[in-house]
């Protein structure tokens, strides 16, 4: 009885979390009036919506934009964060925890609070309606986040490993690049992936700092999708677009789940 209840609870949880996505898939495979019939699986599945999404607007371009901005931002953030997190995680200096807290608080900024200042900055740099401008503004949340997470990873690396390198004559730069960086591979992958997802999903800046269809990122494209009639959204296409951008993300998350546990350092310390 207890086990049955528990199984029911689990089933309810899975249903709750998975159903909306499932429903989006089901809806995306229907076209015309079939969309308005509630059924567990479309009687006549069709990929027409998927074709329409890419024909109706530069959706492929939006995906490319999102990819470019997100990966560029992640790359730069990680590069800046690796050395910074070493300084924050492993070097004792006055004001370190205050600095760390300030950096964390930046990632908690309400984005709207910097919107007008960023708008001015982006326009002054001539980056309005450009992917470069978007990338620059995204640093406000990806950079503090990567610094913060990498700092905790940095702290977990064994102290004796660093001391062995110091005795071997390694400078801080050598320690970071030749000892810690190779060991942080899994951590970098995990952190980068999380930052990538955040950048990929960002909406407010992308909505505000881009203007034309060909500069839009995926979330903006999906939010602003409109049909032939101004009053009714092309729901089938919206669902198709949603599925297209979500499937890779879910795949990434599944891979990432395994990545997080890494036994690389297990060989270095203790038995």
């Amino acid at each position: 009885m207890k086990r049955l209840l528990f199984a029911l609870l689990l089933a309810a949880i899975v249903f709750y979390t998975v159903f909306p996505f499932y429903w989006a898939i089901v809806s995306s495979l229907k076209s015309g009036s079939a969309l308005f019939i509630v059924e567990a699986w479309p009687a006549d599945p069709t990929l027409a919506n998927y074709a329409a999404v890419f024909r109706g607007q530069p959706f492929g371009r939006s995906i490319l934009n999102s990819l470019l901005v997100a990966s560029g931002v992640v790359g730069v953030s990680l590069a800046l964060a690796v050395t910074a997190s070493y300084a924050l995680g492993r070097v004792a200096f006055r004001g370190r925890s205050l600095l760390l807290l300030s950096i964390l608080s930046v990632s908690m900024f309400p984005q709207v609070a910097v919107l007008s200042g960023l708008f001015e900055l982006v326009r002054a740099l001539g980056l309005y309606n450009s992917l470069w401008g978007l990338g620059l503004t995204y640093m406000i949340f990806t950079l503090p986040f990567t610094v913060w997470v990498l700092t905790t990873f940095m702290r977990e690396l064994p102290r004796e490993l660093e001391e062995a390198a110091i005795v071997d004559g390694a400078t801080p730069w050598v320690i970071v690049t030749r000892i810690f960086l190779p060991l942080l591979g899994p951590a970098l992958a995990a952190t980068g992936l999380l930052a990538f997802i955040t950048a990929w999903n960002e909406f407010l800046f992308a909505l505000t700092f881009t203007l034309t269809d060909d500069r839009r990122t995926v979330p903006v494209a999906i939010a602003l999708m409109s049909g032939a009639s101004a009053f009714e959204l092309p729901w089938g296409q919206v669902m198709a677009a949603s599925v297209v951008v979500t499937v890779p993300l879910i795949a990434l998350v599944l891979v990432f789940q395994r990545r997080i546990v890494s036994g690389l350092t297990a060989g270095a310390v203790k038995g």
Partner: peptide
């Protein structure tokens, strides 16, 4: 440390993994 002419063997061995 590197200029002191010493070498150290650590409790955890501290080998570069």
């Amino acid at each position: 440390p590197a200029g002191r002419g010493i070498a150290m063997v650590f409790q955890s061995y501290a080998l570069y993994p």
